[in-house]
Each structure stands twice: as structure tokens, then as C-alpha cells.
Design a protein around this nucleic acid. Structure first.
Length: 585
DNA sequence: CCCATGACGAG
DNA sequence: AGCTCGTCATGGGT
């Protein structure tokens, strides 16, 4: 094929190669050249696989979902990428990742208005001059991207031949932004001198990009779940599957009745917290709210409390993780699928919908490997305090990371027991001020002044409304104080920033680890099927279990060695090979 | 119909 | 009782 031959002479292996996929084919771009390649989805996927094999490029796209989301299964394994949207969010913070925002930031222009959540009604048919009368040019007189392009209409509404030509042009623009971003991440401040390897900001940009691609793959792959097992667990927790809406209402009334009686208020709506609060007051409980942790201490004081708490638990399963959840979120192939985001708006953790991140423990036995496969699970041990040691360069806390159980040396340093040490460490990272943590925090200050100083500096920035940057370079926007803001809001911003520098850095390490594991699985049938903040779950052929377990450990060693280079901080992972998720540890 | 609130599942 | 997320039900405002 012509394009292949031309690309081989036009670009070196490993170089940036911009990609835009449209229904009519794809657009490719390298500096100074671009190609429009007509073809169907299968042809486009085949070409990508071939290019990957020949060139191993750094695929560059506006967003992974838009670039490969339309390609048919199975997606070819693409090893390396630069995701303009993901890198923009790293550099600029916030949650915008639309092309117009990325373009403006890369060119030092003011942020354009966010795209309408619902596309504006179309007054014409396929016209490109709906917004501001542009003439089909992607860049307007003001230097901003034309809305018709940034919102996809310029590509989506063009005739096939024109569509691929525009795709190539669109790819060239992504490449230009990516190159500006690459300079920006290389110039991010390093927290301290780091021996060897690419700058940390560059590492983070690559890991964030890989995570964005992984998010697309996770969404396709899904989490293997045994429907029959899930149905059994659901039946036990929330009752039998209702045959109709009327039946559902009847079962609900049956569940409610004894709790209402116990509360001594036949009319109370259990789903209305204000009414529940009133009923509890009638029983002599004077409470500010009816949250479970608050009610817990009265569990044995009155049978109604116990009844309410267990009702709530069943109600949670029945509503959020009930039969309708099973029907909508679990496919005919027994895979639980939900949308994934590679980074949340706060500190950059991965998020997932459809219960993937908050599946109740009772339902987890249903998550099981398919016949012939196993689940290989790994979770990072005490990752946040270890991350704190690395990012703050606290020598004493770094020494504590050499222990498998970090809290043991911390307890020794604080002259406290292990539970107290754990509370003190968590309180420091979350900004807790009250309760039993107070005294222990004082000792933390003395034992780990550098780490605590790092946290205090972040908190101070947050209180003043100054943005903070994580160790890996992510800008965390704090937001200016509102005029006349009350002290509680200021304190909340301080706690947010204090926690964000730890939680955010941990998310960066986690994503870099996940990216390394993903790379190590290329060529295997094994897949990452779940990312859960500090935990990776792989689904692999049974014969590859040992290899996968070794990969998880080796990838952590390799990743941490780059990420925390020279810090001396040790990271640990607990790995187990199981049939069911619930069997791990 | 959108949004804030309370509540709770997970890390 | 300090951080983050997603989801559901309710009730008040359009």
C-alpha cells in the first residue's frame, strides 16, 4: 500500500504519528505531511495493526475514544500514544478535554466557551457555517478552533471523500497541539533531581495517555461476571426478581412494613430522610442526621435502629445494584460494562460507572474468571503513605517504607500502637483535625517534619485559593475563595488540596503501573479487566497465571524505579491468583 | 426538566 | 468523620 511505503520513508520508527478515524477511513499526519486513507472500519483497523508492527509510532490523537472507539473488535494493540485531551488535563487541570480547549491552551489563547452539552439544533443540512460563519477552515481569524471542527460536525457531516481529507487535516492539527504539549510537559518543574530517564512530566504525560487508551479498552472488555451467581446473591440480598412493576411495588411494601412498625410511625416514608429523622426523634433519638455511622452506636438501643440499618442495606442492593442494574450493565456475554474515565476532575484518579468501582462486597463472589482462565489480582500496599514519602522526600518516612508494613516503624517512631499510627498517618493525609488523631498528629510532626511540611504547604495553598501541582505535574485547581466565604469552606479547600497532592500522585503512579502491565500483556490473551485506585485485576488464560503474577510485580518495580527514581522509597504489591475476585486475600 | 441534598457503595 | 468517586430517591425550584 502506498501510504505504508510513504510513511516508512517519511517517518522514523517510534516517531509521532497523528491519527483520526472517521467512518469513511482515516487521516494520518507526521510533521509536514498528511495522508487521507479511505476505507471501511475493518480496513482501517488492519492498517493500524500494520503500522504498529512496522513503525511502533507514538500514536497521537485528540482523544483515545474518538480515535479508536469506532474500530471493530478486536482492537489492535497500540503500544504508545499521546492523548491531547489527557495531557491537556494534566497541564491545565479541570475537566475540559475538548479540542477547542486543548488548542487554546497550547496556543496561549483564552479558553473558549465550553461546548453545549446538547449540540445546538441544526438549521441547515450539513452546513459548516453554523457558528460564527466560518467557511470550513478549522482555525478562525481569532486563532481559535472553529466550533464546527472542534465539535465534530466538520468531519461527521462531510461526504466520504471530503471526510477523509478533513480527517488528515484534523490529524495534523492534533499533532501540532501535541508537539506544543510535549514541550510544556518537558518543562514542568521537577520536585527534585532525578537520576536518568525522561523528565517526570513526560513520563506522566505518557502514562496518562496510556490510561486514556486503557479506559477505552476496559469499556470494551468488561468485567467477567457470572450471571447465575449474581442472581443468587441478589435474590438473597434483595428478594426475588419482580415479574412486574406492580409486583415490585408490592415487594417493596412488604420490605418496608416491619421497619415502619418498628419506628412506631405507620405513615413514615423510609426513603425520606427528614421523615425518618422525625420518627427517630419520636423514639427519643435527637440526631442531626440519620447516617449509618451515626446510627451505628444506637444499633442495640432500640430495635427500630437495627431494623432501619438492615433495611437500608437491602434497599441499596435493590435499587442501585438490583435486577435492573444486572439487566442493563451486564451483557449477554456475562461482562459487566460501564463507561470509564482516565482521570477525575479532582486529583486525577480513574473513575468508572455501572458499579465497577463500588460493587458491594456481597456481590463480589459473582466476579469470576471464565472457564479456562483465572483472575490475577494485585493491590498496592499502603500506597498513599509511601507516595507521600516519595513526593515529599522525607527521609524518616522513606526509611519506614522499607518495611512490608509501613505502620510498624511509624508506630515505633510515634511511641504508639499500630492502630494509632495508622489513624495518625491517615489523619495527616486527609486533614483530620478532631478526635483521637490530634495527639498522634503532634508526634507525626516531630517524627516526619518534611512530609508534614509538604502537606501543610499544600493545605496553605488550598486555603488561599492557589492551585497546586502534583509530583507528576498535574495541575489541581483549587478555585478562588468566594467573597465573604466562611471559615468552614476555607478549611475544606485546605483539606482538599492537602489530600489532592497525595491522592493525585498515587493515581499517577497507579496509572504508570497499569500502563506497564498493559504493555507486558501485549501478545497475550490476558487483559486488564479492572482498575480500582490501588488494585489491578487481570483475566488471563490459566496457563499464564504465573507469568501474569510476575508481570504485576516486575512492572511495579520497573515503574516505581522510574517514577520515584532516587527516592529510596519502596512500593509493595500483594498478588493472588484466584477464580473469584472475592477469594483474593 | 434541572439541581441540590441525603444517603451509601467502594477506594 | 477528615479525601475522592457514582448512583438512587426525594423535594424544591423552575
Amino acid at each position: 500500500m502506498d501510504v505504508l511505503a510513504e510513511l516508512r520513508t517519511a517517518t522514523a520508527p517510534g516517531a509521532d504519528l497523528a491519527l483520526v478515524v472517521v467512518p469513511a477511513g482515516l487521516g494520518l499526519a507526521v510533521p509536514g505531511r498528511r495522508w487521507a486513507v479511505p476505507g471501511d472500519a475493518a480496513g482501517s483497523a488492519a492498517l493500524l495493526a500494520r503500522l504498529e508492527e512496522l513503525l511502533r509510532p507514538r500514536w497521537t490523537w485528540w482523544a483515545a475514544a474518538g480515535a479508536v472507539g469506532r474500530l471493530p473488535d478486536p482492537l489492535p494493540h497500540l503500544a504508545r500514544c499521546h492523548d491531547v485531551g489527557a495531557v491537556h488535563r494534566l497541564l491545565a487541570g479541570g475537566s475540559r478535554e475538548d479540542p477547542a480547549a486543548c488548542w487554546a491552551a497550547a496556543h496561549g489563547l483564552p479558553q473558549p466557551p465550553p461546548p453545549a452539552r446538547r449540540p445546538a439544533p441544526l438549521h441547515g443540512t450539513g452546513l459548516l457555517d453554523l457558528d460564527g460563519g466560518d467557511d470550513g477552515e478549522p482555525v478562525g481569524d481569532d486563532g481559535q478552533l472553529a466550533p464546527a471542527w472542534s465539535q465534530g460536525r466538520a468531519l461527521g457531516e462531510a461526504e466520504p471523500a471530503e471526510q477523509v481529507v478533513r480527517a488528515a487535516r484534523w490529524a495534523a492539527l492534533a499533532l501540532e497541539v501535541a508537539q506544543r504539549q510535549a514541550r510544556a510537559v518537558a518543562a514542568l518543574p521537577e520536585h527534585r533531581r532525578r537520576p536518568g530517564g525522561p523528565p517526570l512530566g513526560v513520563q506522566t504525560a505518557h502514562a496518562e495517555s496510556a490510561a486514556a487508551l486503557l479506559a477505552v479498552e476496559l469499556e470494551r472488555t468488561g468485567l467477567p461476571l457470572e450471571r447465575a451467581t449474581a442472581e443468587g446473591l441478589l435474590e438473597r440480598a434483595a428478594g426475588p426478581r419482580p415479574a412486574s412493576a406492580a409486583e415490585e411495588a408490592r415487594l417493596r411494601a412488604v420490605r418496608d412494613a416491619p421497619v415502619r412498625r418498628a419506628l412506631g410511625a405507620g405513615e413514615v416514608d423510609l426513603r425520606n430522610p427528614a421523615q425518618v429523622l422525625g420518627a427517630l426523634r419520636g423514639l427519643g433519638f435527637d440526631l442531626p442526621d440519620t447516617r449509618a455511622w451515626r446510627l451505628e452506636q444506637f444499633r442495640h438501643a432500640h430495635p427500630a435502629v437495627e431494623a432501619l440499618l438492615s433495611w437500608r442495606k437491602a434497599e441499596r442492593i435493590a435499587t442501585t445494584y438490583g435486577w435492573s442494574w444486572l439487566d442493563t450493565a451486564v451483557g449477554a456475554d456475562g461482562r459487566l460494562r460501564g463507561a470509564w474515565s482516565a482521570s477525575d476532575a479532582a486529583a486525577g484518579r480513574m473513575t468508572a460507572q455501572a458499579g465497577l468501582h463500588n460493587l458491594p462486597a456481597e456481590l463480589r463472589p459473582a466476579v469470576a474468571a471464565e472457564p479456562g482462565s483465572v483472575l490475577v489480582r494485585a493491590d498496592l500496599g499502603q500506597v498513599e503513605p509511601r507516595v507521600l514519602a516519595a513526593v515529599s522526600a522525607d527521609a524518616a518516612l522513606t526509611a519506614a517504607t522499607r518495611d512490608d508494613d509501613l505502620y510498624a516503624p511509624v508506630a515505633a517512631a510515634l511511641a504508639a500502637d499500630r492502630p494509632t499510627a495508622k489513624v495518625a498517618v491517615l489523619a495527616a493525609m486527609y486533614g483530620q483535625t478532631s478526635g483521637a488523631a490530634g495527639e498522634a498528629l503532634q508526634r507525626m510532626e516531630r517524627a516526619y517534619p518534611t512530609a508534614l511540611g509538604y502537606l501543610r504547604a499544600a493545605e496553605e495553598a488550598g486555603r488561599e485559593g492557589r492551585d497546586v501541582r502534583t509530583y507528576g505535574g498535574r495541575l489541581v485547581r483549587v478555585g478562588a475563595p468566594a467573597p465573604g466565604e466562611v471559615g468552614a469552606a476555607t478549611a475544606a479547600r485546605g483539606r482538599f488540596a492537602r489530600n489532592a497532592v497525595v491522592q493525585g500522585a498515587a493515581a499517577e503512579l497507579f496509572k504508570a503501573w497499569a500502563a506497564t502491565v498493559r504493555a507486558g500483556l501485549s501478545g497475550s490473551a490476558g487483559r486488564i479487566v479492572l482498575c480500582l485506585h490501588d488494585e489491578l485485576l487481570l483475566h488471563v488464560p490459566a496457563g499464564e497465571a504465573e507469568r501474569a503474577a510476575a508481570l504485576l510485580v516486575g512492572a511495579l518495580e520497573q515503574t516505581a524505579g522510574r517514577w520515584a527514581a532516587g527516592s529510596g522509597v519502596r512500593f509493595v504489591a500483594d498478588v493472588s491468583v484466584v477464580r473469584r475476585w472475592s477469594e483474593a486475600k
